[in-house]
Write a protein that binds this DNA or RNA. Structure first.
Lengths: 213, 213
DNA sequence: CGTTATACCTACCAATCGTTAGGGAGACTC
DNA sequence: GAGTCTCCCTAACGATTGGTAGGTATAACG
């Protein structure tokens, strides 16, 4: 028995049984490792043995916590969408009442970028790895994604009615353009160069013009 | 021997030896099949056996035309970038001399979208599959990509000098936002719904405002 | 102290991966 | 017509994949 296993074992003693395992439980460590691998290596390269190695256990032991690899992946992807969903909602709620639709859009952009680029491998995984998931998996994960996209639909509608989007431009096109830009950011963003706040304000300014005072 | 093999064989007789194999040669069929698989299924799912099946041959026969799977993939990715590069250059050259920087940007957006969404599995593959390529492969393919991105760098510079981009916005951010939006389009675009021309004009209008007359 | 549950292990399975060796059949060359 | 070249085949290789069976050590509970 290795030291890390012993540590994990004693830590487990104080872990309460829950549907959402806490940070240091075995199940959570597996989810964390899977999220990292999905984000950085993609679905196929996220093997059960690679997951196990990151956790410090053997591949077979994974199946004590989850019934299959795809069950882990599905969980990670859905948690990733939920995290960015909550992050954007919180950012919007934290805004003053007098915030304009443009202010709200910029806040949403910033929250989305922060979640996917800095805070969460889960969110990044749900964006980057989604495209080439097995079809059945993509299907089940699509529900949570649609729910999240509804936020942006509403933000776009408000911005359009406030005159921030040209009348002859499709709202769907505007939403897809903005979500495309922020989702693609994971392909080029590197920590420590351009701060996310600057990226968010630049994106908002390009799409919706300077802030009206 | 199957009929399709016999047909391919007689067709091969008239194929001249060339570095860029013509459309119906064995090598080109393999590249086509690989491009399709990379676009729709991703790198890991693009197995030698899947490629062979789409061509109508056996997996081992691929190695008569290429030294390895990665050699085929590298070729497909690079040809994809070259294709969209040429498409954008042609579209810009076809513009009248009096075209504004904004006109040129919109034409480039349209050409990029057409190439990646309708015309070429190669271009689509080079965009969608690039992220999770093996590191060495990503490295060799990055050269051609940089060359293509230089076009957009120049387009952005011209647009900025003509006043289409706010002065306090980073040109890099503008370029990355626009390229992100068009590259992500492959994730949601479905043929026969919104025409690509409409998408291109909407994107240009959101980013650079209405066309000045 | 004996029982039970938890969390891990080893060792294996069938399937699939990229790749190779060796052979065969048609087509071109002399 | 013999020899060579092109293009494909079959059959296998070692490695790796997701997943399973059965065993073991620890902790908690009665």
């Amino acid at each position: 028995m290795t030291i890390s296993q012993a540590v994990a074992r004693t830590a487990k003693a104080s872990a309460a049984k829950s549907d959402t395992p806490d940070q240091n439980s075995g199940a959570r460590q597996i989810l964390n490792a899977t999220a990292w691998l999905l984000r950085h290596r993609g679905y196929e390269a996220t093997t059960t043995r690679a997951i196990a190695e990151r956790v410090g256990i053997k591949a077979g032991s994974i199946y004590h916590h989850f019934p299959s690899k795809d069950a882990i992946v599905e969980r990670v992807i859905n948690e990733g969408v939920l995290l960015v969903h909550k992050a954007v909602m919180s950012a919007l709620d934290a805004l003053p009442k007098k915030a304009t639709p443009r202010d709200r859009l910029q806040a949403a952009i910033k929250a989305h970028l922060l979640s996917s680029l800095e805070h969460s491998d889960y969110t990044s995984a749900s964006i980057r790895a989604f495209a080439f998931l097995p079809p059945e998996l993509r299907k089940t994960c699509r529900v949570e994604r649609r729910r999240y996209e509804d936020i942006w639909q509403q933000l776009m509608k408000d911005a359009s009615e406030a005159g921030y989007i040209p009348k002859d431009v499709s709202l769907d096109a505007a939403r897809l353009m903005l979500l495309g830009a922020v989702n693609w950011a994971g392909e080029w963003y590197r920590p420590g160069r351009v701060p996310i706040d600057k990226i968010a304000t630049d994106f908002a300014q390009i799409a919706f013009g300077a802030r009206r005072t």
